Amino acid sequence: MSGSLTTFTHLLRREGLLLARRPAALANPLVFFAVVATLFPLAIGADPGLLRQIAPGLVWVAAVLAVLLSLDSLFREDFEDGSLEQWALSPHGMLLPVLAKVLAHWLLSGLALCVLAPVLGLMLSLPASSLPVLMVTLALGTPVLTLLGAIGAALTVGLRRGGLLLAVLVLPLYIPVLILGSGALRAALQGLPVTGFVLWLASLAALTLTLAPWAIVAGLRISLNE
């Protein structure tokens, strides 16, 4: 157990360093998220009431698309340089490298979305009292989006221009997270309880964290055998 934990720590550190050397790849989803939330008020007007009404759906749609934008290249370099074959032949199997890669990706992109979201929420006239709900739901929802998206990325990693197919595969799976996340924020704006939404998101996060890594490994093995 301690050996696996040490290996996972080294893999996580390695993936974090590799991602840090590609700041543009990390910045693109954040810039997209910020641009969408910034340009939308310019298109519909600066009425605070209207912005507050559409903010829950807008923030979550922007977050979903930003996460999806970052997933096409998640395993692409490892596939092209032969790292996936080395993972498959490793005595530790593919599960630990996959978990390390997805966790590093979420820490440097999904978690950054959670930090950036309150600033954009204020730009959309969200009251300060609703910002903790926004951050909590994003902190629970973005790991689900990343893990589900990683399944699609694993299945399409061997395809040229697989981004469109990735979107077709993954977007239907994102609908429950989108509904729960925007519903929680909408309930917070209306002064209603948000506990049910948060618990459902936490349940989805636990279920996805339990099952998705195995599906990602299976998808990568399918791509390697094609």
Rank of each mutant, 00 (worst) to 15 (best):
L11P: 09
L11T: 04
L12S: 12
L17I: 01
R21Y: 00
P23H: 10
A25L: 07
L26C: 15
P29L: 06
V31K: 11
A37R: 02
P41D: 08
G45Y: 03
A46T: 13
D47F: 07
P48C: 11
P48M: 08
L50W: 08
I54E: 10
G57E: 06
W60G: 13
L65H: 12
A66R: 08
V67E: 14
D72A: 14
D78F: 00
E80N: 13
S83D: 11
E85Q: 14
E85F: 04
Q86P: 10
L89M: 14
P91Q: 01
H92R: 13
L95Y: 01
K101M: 10
L103S: 13
P118W: 00
P118C: 00
V119L: 15
G121Q: 09
L122V: 13
S125Y: 01
L126D: 01
A128C: 01
A128R: 11
L134W: 07
M135S: 14
A139K: 04
T142P: 05
P143Q: 05
L145T: 08
A150R: 03
G152C: 10
L155C: 08
L159I: 15
G163E: 09
L166A: 07
A167R: 09
V168D: 11
L169S: 07
P172E: 06
I175E: 02
P176L: 04
S182D: 07
S182C: 02
S182E: 06
G183L: 03
R186Y: 01
A188F: 02
L192D: 10
L192M: 08
L204N: 11
A205H: 14
A212K: 05
P213I: 01
L220T: 07
S223A: 15
